[in-house]
Write a protein that binds this DNA or RNA. Structure first.
Length: 309
DNA sequence: AAGACGAAAGTGGTTGA
DNA sequence: TCAACAACTTTCGTCTT
């Protein structure tokens, strides 16, 4: 069984080429130890379903029901072993009993700490799936986000910060890592937080966890815009071509990718004849018409120049 | 009348002393 | 901590279709 699984596992991370792959049976995933991307999920798919039950952790996660059930985690019935070394009838305990009670207390304390972390994680996981759902992300994004969040916990980065903010940041990071195009705006909206806060948490996590986050490109946004506007494939081609030329002309540097994408899409809409208003595109791209105009202007100026060469 | 254009002032975040 | 700064937005008047 183990061997069978191992045989199907890639040796290197397709993302960064690292060979440091971590098999995470708890979450039934293989994760790249270098960049944190989820390479393979649902490991136990290969085995019979009952395997999930031999490990409580596994049963809680992915395979069985919605992750939300994780929230019912609250066993809530914590008790405390008090410090009087007396038994029920009030008699003093014998030394060996005392020692036993001491050990019990110690473990009880430890378990309670563990509980607090688990509780945080449970809460976070429910936030994560809520946000992911609002964004219509594929499963892999949620999985990656969970890994990111877990790592944040491990590094003690959550304490003193809002769970939701961190969850939103984890989702945003996951989107970028999985090349799933969503703007910071959209993540903020989906999480009910301000763009500012999500952005701050995002930068914080990236910095503290030393993540490499692939920069988002105008081309990604353009594809999405064209699709959202229900334009023809031809329009997409033109938009992409425009962006390639723009980047070759060093027009994209320092500019917001969404603005560039919006401008390229606008140009495509004009060129293909299925004209869209600037307002329409601006709204979807989450930039203003003015920004589109500015990008569009520099684009036109420079591309005209090329045509005459 | 709607859309496109552009000038000018404003905004929020980063950077560097 | 504060001011300079770049990118982007807001606002508004004018031009074009």
């Amino acid at each position: 069984m183990e061997e069978e699984e191992l045989a199907s596992i890639p040796k290197r991370c397709p993302e960064c080429g690292s060979t440091k792959l971590i098999k995470d049976y708890e979450h039934a995933e293989i994760v790249c130890g270098n960049c944190g991307i989820v390479i393979k999920t649902n490991l136990e798919d290969r085995g019979p379903e009952w395997r999930a039950f031999d490990d409580e952790q596994k049963a809680k996660r992915t395979r069985v029901g919605a992750p939300l059930t994780y929230t019912i985690h609250d066993k809530g019935l914590t008790t405390i072993i008090d410090w009087h070394d007396k038994d029920v009838s009030g008699k003093k305990l014998k030394p060996d009993q005392k020692a036993q009670i001491y050990r019990l207390r110690k473990w009880h304390r430890r378990i309670r700490i563990f509980d607090a972390q688990e509780r945080n994680l449970a809460h976070a996981l429910s936030e994560l799936s809520k946000i992911a759902e609002a964004l219509n992300t594929p499963r892999s994004v949620l999985e990656t986000a969970a890994v990111v969040y877990r790592r944040a916990i491990k590094h003690g980065l959550i304490r003193g910060r809002s769970i939701r903010g961190m969850a939103a940041a984890a989702i945003y990071i996951a989107c970028r890592k999985c090349m799933f195009t969503r703007t910071l705006d959209e993540v903020a909206e989906a999480s009910g937080l301000s763009k500012k806060e999500v952005g701050r948490s995002y930068r914080f996590l990236v910095k503290e966890l030393d993540f490499y986050v692939p920069p988002s490109t105008p081309s990604q946004y353009a594809s999405r815009l064209v699709a959202q506007l229900a334009m023809q494939g031809e329009a997409e081609k033109i938009a992409q071509k425009t962006l390639v030329m723009a980047s070759q002309l060093r027009l994209t540097g320092g500019r917001g990718p969404t603005g560039m994408a919006a401008a390229a899409t606008y140009i495509a809409s004009v060129l293909t004849g299925e004209r869209k208003t600037q307002r329409e595109i601006a709204e979807l791209a989450r930039v203003t018409e003015v920004t589109i105009r500015n990008r569009y202007k520099s684009l036109i100026e420079n591309l005209m120049f090329i045509i005459y060469l």
